Structure formats: C-alpha cells, structure tokens
Amino acid sequence: MSSPSDFRFRATTAFQRYLANPLMRRLPFHTLLETTGRVSGLPRRTPLGGRRVGDTFWLVSEFGERSQYVRNIQADPRVRVRIGGRWHSGTAHLMPDDDPVARLRTLPRANSAAVRTLGTGLLTVRVDLET
C-alpha cells in the first residue's frame, strides 16, 4: 500500500508534468531551470521559483532527490537558469545541510507556500551563475 506522501508525490508530479509545466514554460518571464537529461542528453526545462542573490540563484526542490531535475543535476551539474527573460549559465550544487524551510522564507512567497504544502523531501539547490 502506498503512503500519503507517495500519493502526494505522484499526484503533484502528474499535475506538474502534464498541465502546469507546459503552460509555465510558455510564459516569457517565468523562471526556468534547464538541465541536461541524464539518459537522453537533451535539454530539460523546468519552471520553478527561486531568487537570485548576486551571482547565486537559490531554489528549494519540493521532492528532493526524487525530483527529475535534481537527478539530472546529480549526473551533470552544468545548468542554465532563465531569470527575467534572460538565460544565465551556471553550476548547480545540492545543499543537504542547508535548512530548506528557512531558505523558503527568503524566496518568493507564493512558490514557497506551494513547496512547503506539497513537498515531502525538501532540498536546497544553489546555482553559482557565471559572470
């Protein structure tokens, strides 16, 4: 029998994959994270919330290492982030020792509320942007 957190993960990822993400990717100023698919080698673009602080972009993955983009980062940490309609190359770092709940308090409020509500394995990700 599956646990409530497993059901939440499956329901949320299905909603994101088939409805929310295809719509959000089309919005010209929505923040996107582009990773390289670990199996396909193709670019994978994921809409997300986060905040740029200087030459660093911070985000929190709601499902931690279960998130496909986190698994792609583990295979290849070179990423691109679209912020305000402009693409920036960078290197992503998983931050398991960072407090993701405290980090969410510093990120955009609406996205952070959704991540806290739906997430089952929060994980902070830091992207060091190339200047």
Rank of each mutant, 00 (worst) to 15 (best):
E34K: 01
R82Y: 02
M95P: 03
F9C: 09
R78A: 09
T31Q: 01
V60T: 10
T131A: 15
R66Q: 15
T124I: 12
G85L: 06
Q74W: 06
A11M: 14
I73C: 00
G41M: 06
T117R: 15
R126T: 01
G54M: 09
P22E: 06
M95C: 15
P47Y: 08
W87V: 05
R26V: 00
Y69A: 00
S2I: 13
V53I: 11
R17P: 02
P108F: 01
L104H: 08
L32D: 07
A20N: 10
T35Q: 02
G84S: 00
E62W: 01
P100M: 10
G41W: 08
L42S: 09
L104A: 09
R80E: 05
E65D: 13
Y18H: 15
S5T: 15
A110Q: 13
P108H: 03
R126V: 00
R78K: 11
G90F: 01
P100N: 07
P77F: 08
L42C: 00
N72K: 04
R126M: 05
L48P: 01
F57T: 06
T91C: 02
V81H: 06
A14R: 14
V79H: 07
L48Y: 05
L23Q: 06
L33S: 03
R71D: 00
T12M: 00
R10D: 14
R80Q: 03
V53N: 12
A75Y: 03
G121H: 11
L104G: 02
D55E: 15
F7C: 13
T91E: 14
L104P: 05
L104S: 02
R116W: 02
R66P: 09
T46E: 06
D55C: 12
A75D: 07
R51C: 11
L32T: 01
F7N: 14
P47G: 12
T13P: 04
T36N: 04
P28N: 05
L129V: 10
L48Q: 06
W87Q: 07
V115I: 14
R82D: 01
R26P: 08
M95V: 10
R86L: 14
P100Q: 03
R51E: 14
V53D: 15
V79S: 04
P43Y: 05
E130W: 09
R71E: 11
S89E: 15
H88F: 13
R10N: 13
R126H: 01
L23D: 02
R38E: 05
T31A: 05
D99L: 09
V127C: 07
D6Y: 12
V127E: 00
R126D: 04
L23V: 12
S40L: 03
R10Q: 14
D99T: 01
R25M: 04
P96W: 03
T56Q: 15
R52E: 13
L27T: 01
D76H: 12
F63Y: 13
Q74Y: 02
T31L: 00
Q16T: 11
V39F: 14
Q16A: 15
T35P: 01
M24Y: 09
R26E: 08
F7V: 14
R103D: 06
L118R: 07
L118V: 05
R86K: 15
T13C: 10
E34Y: 02
S112R: 06
R44E: 04
G121N: 12
R51T: 10
T131F: 11
T13R: 13
G84A: 10
P43Q: 08
F15I: 12
P47A: 11
V79I: 02
